[in-house]
């Protein structure tokens, strides 16, 4: 979806209505590098985009139904104190706090990210419909401030999802790689949790700070 969307965007890599300027995009008329795009040409990318969009919609609905039926949405809704706790995580990751803040299943930064991802996903879908059918669904397009702005929010939603996904994947590998096998098997050893290990990014790759225990004296020759 991202690649084909960028290919479509490259047909007119700007937001301004013809004869106007656009305030809020610094790279107007600068195309996205080809290697980030998918679909080969405008028409092909449109076919991919308009076919796969239904997969994204179905996938989103399955996800929302699942977390609703399992009650897991409760883990994701923002709560009072989440912003303060997120700030504590930022402080920890930037070495301005020594110990890992206490967390349950997910830390506050994770919770914020996992809450925002489906929000931006829904925004991408809804703004997508708004720019697909700006006349037939003109009421929807109007909610987002008209076609030009709906197209902009569609782009921003994509960008937010890409940033969240890259950040998420980076943190999985950098902070909690032990969770990778557990995504498939379900087994997770709590003694390897980032909190238990006081793990910052790439912590597991660095040698321990604690000095090694003194070597036992070599056995006496007999």
């Amino acid at each position: 979806m991202v690649g084909s969307g960028l290919r479509i965007f490259n047909a007119y890599p700007a937001f301004a209505r013809k004869g106007e300027m656009f305030c809020c995009y610094p790279f107007e008329h600068k195309p996205i590098p080809d290697w980030l795009t998918f679909g080969g040409w405008l028409g092909g990318a449109r076919h991919w985009h308009f076919a796969m969009m239904w997969l994204l919609v179905v996938n989103g609905l399955v996800y929302l139904t699942f977390i609703y039926l399992h009650g897991e949405w409760r883990d994701l809704v923002p709560r009072k104190g989440d912003i303060r706790d997120s700030w504590q995580m930022v402080k920890f990751y930037t070495f301005r706090r020594k110990d890992h803040p206490h967390q349950g299943k997910n830390n506050a930064l994770q919770k914020t990210a996992y809450f925002l991802l489906p929000v931006f996903g829904a925004l991408a879908v809804v703004t997508g419909f708004a720019i697909w059918k700006p006349v037939q669904l003109s009421w929807l397009t109007a909610i987002f401030g008209g076609y030009v702005w709906a197209r902009y929010w569609h782009f921003i939603a994509m960008l937010a999802m890409v940033i969240l996904s890259i950040g998420h994947i980076f943190m999985v590998f950098a902070v909690d790689p032990y969770s990778l096998p557990s995504m498939i098997t379900g087994n997770y050893d709590p003694s390897h949790s980032p909190e238990a290990r006081n793990a910052r990014p790439f912590y597991h790759l660095f040698p321990r700070r604690t000095p090694a225990p003194p070597m036992p004296p070599p056995p006496e020759a007999t």
């Binding site: 479509i8 965007f9 047909a11 007119y12 700007a14 301004a16 209505r17 013809k18 004869g19 405008l42 449109r46 700006p134 006349v135 076609y147 030009v148 197209r151």
Partner: peptide
């Protein structure tokens, strides 16, 4: 509405 993504009044 152009297929390329731009609009003009």
């Amino acid at each position: 509405y152009c297929v390329e993504g731009w609009t003009a009044v």
